[in-house]
């Protein structure tokens, strides 16, 4: 399905902003149970967090959907 260029630009900006603003400090507010959480003293923004780090979109990336089996 074709999306408008305005919407695509807004999505691109939205996920980019989410990527910039998601930090370990934010993650600490929501408990996650995976094995690769940031250490307590981590303050940097970086790739590879589990549970919603780099991917942007903020809270939407914590969505478990299925995959719990």
């Amino acid at each position: 399905m074709k999306l408008s260029s305005n919407l695509l630009a807004a999505i691109a900006l939205g996920v980019a902003i989410g990527s910039l603003t998601t930090s370990c400090e934010q993650q600490d507010q929501v408990p996650v149970v995976h094995d690769l959480n940031c250490p307590d003293d981590c303050t940097s923004e970086h790739d590879g967090h589990e549970g919603g780090g780099e991917e942007g979109g903020g809270e939407m990336e914590w969505c478990p959907a299925c995959g719990m089996g």
């Binding site: 399905m1 999306l3 919407l7 999505i11 939205g14 809270e59 914590w62 969505c63 478990p64």
Partner: peptide
């Protein structure tokens, strides 16, 4: 329902949902 416990969603995400 993964977002029921959160307040609000970004406008661009709402627009994406709305388009589909």
């Amino acid at each position: 329902d993964a977002l029921f416990k959160h307040q609000g969603i970004p406008q661009w995400f709402s627009d994406l949902l709305g388009a589909f």
